[in-house]
Nucleic acid binder design. Structure first.
Lengths: 222, 222
DNA sequence: TTATACCTGTCAGGTTGATGTCAGTTTCGG
DNA sequence: CCGAAACTGACATCAACCTGACAGGTATAA
């Protein structure tokens, strides 16, 4: 999961960054809404953790401008008790969730996980690709309406390829998706999973091509 | 059924929680609209029981902010006689039902059942699934017209599976439905209940498949 | 109160199956 | 044709899962 954290308190930001990194997520930190805005303009994230109380432009302003632009990025708001206006919930402003400081990091992580999951489940959780249909809710794969049983690792890998069609993925890119930070892995393990996945999806129009020395590339054939 | 109760009177809240728990529902209790708001942000419930008279943000405010966000969650309002002129606006604000204090717990339970039923859009509260028929009002199960006696836990689990046919449910998904907030559980407890449920419903066309490493998936066989 | 039945979680032992490793083979670029 | 990279069958390991047995708790009746 790739997260953008917008928080002006450096100590708190550091703890969060550490915690997320340790748990195998990519997290970037900016200290103001303006910087967040400019990063969001050209980079993709899975979610935004946003402090409301920021120097300059406030978190709420950033949020509402995002929503005005119909940006559906999941946003989790961090607020101090004092920031709460009894009448208006952060949710009314378009946040997907919020947490009142002080909070437990594990709580924050759990909320983020839930949010990412919810988001994935929301939008038409079927990815079609030639004669192959992947349903992320049921974790099932069909080829020509025939159900294929995949193991968890294969599902992860397939999902990655399907969301990165026609893009080069290095073995490390793949491994980073399959393994948590700190977990050891060998290139061969990735190859093995790939072999198994290929065997399962043979007969589909999805081809995972090897680019020798570089990585892999999935595309639809015919 | 999973219910969220928002009520600042601890004695009353306790009675309600007890009554609902005894009747096989999962019910969580919070004492303020703010807390309710925060829990609703990230957890799913089948309905909300909401006292209007709360310290801080009122029940009405919570309700209207929910509806502003197009949250269709069934809401049952609890009002004191003094608030009675508010009941018109309760329905206007998007409440689905209301009850004037003091009330009988059985009355409350009945209203909730009715509400949940209405929400499911069923004229009767029977779920049929192959040769298995589940009646959510009487909590009885029939297989080929033969009545099967299930224990409360098994009923909860069966109901969950029946309302989520052909969808993957992780052990955590299941546990969240079976256990109240804060209650501890082990994965094994879930497995045990499942073993017992499977034994009971063998002979039915409802199959609960294990998807190793992911969760469980219920579907109708043949 | 005591006795009884029942529900449900825990424990422990057994089974299964996913997955990483190894080793031998194949493929590809230079 | 050589060497490195990738492929893949076989295997071992270990976590996930299943389930019988048991025990603590609770409700019910005598």
């Amino acid at each position: 999961m790739r997260v953008l954290l917008t928080e002006d308190n450096e100590g708190l930001a550091n703890s969060i960054v550490h915690y997320f990194t340790d748990n195998g997520h990519a997290i970037d930190w900016v200290s103001s809404a303006e910087k967040a805005d400019s990063i969001l303009a050209h980079d993709e994230f899975d979610m935004l953790i946003l402090d409301v109380n920021l120097p300059g432009k406030s978190g709420f302003e950033l949020l509402s401008s995002l929503r005005l632009r119909k940006n559906p990025l999941p946003v989790l708001i961090l607020t101090a008790r004092a920031d709460i206006d009894g009448r208006v919930s952060a949710l009314d402003l378009g946040a997907d969730d919020y947490l009142v400081k002080p909070f437990d990091l594990r709580e924050l992580a759990a909320r983020c996980r839930a949010l990412a999951k919810r988001e994935r489940g929301k939008s038409d959780n079927e990815i079609q690709c030639g004669n192959l249909v992947f349903n992320s809710a049921t974790k099932t794969v069909k080829i020509d309406d025939e159900i294929i049983e995949l193991r968890p690792r294969e599902v992860q890998m397939l999902e990655l390829f399907l969301t990165h069609l026609d893009r080069m993925l290095t073995k490390d890119d793949i491994a980073n998706r399959l393994y948590n930070f700190g977990e050891a892995y060998t290139p061969n393990a990735v190859e093995q999973i790939l072999t198994r996945l290929r065997k399962q999806i043979q007969g589909s129009t999805l081809i995972i091509k090897t680019v020798r020395g570089m990585g892999y590339l999935a595309h639809v054939h015919d």
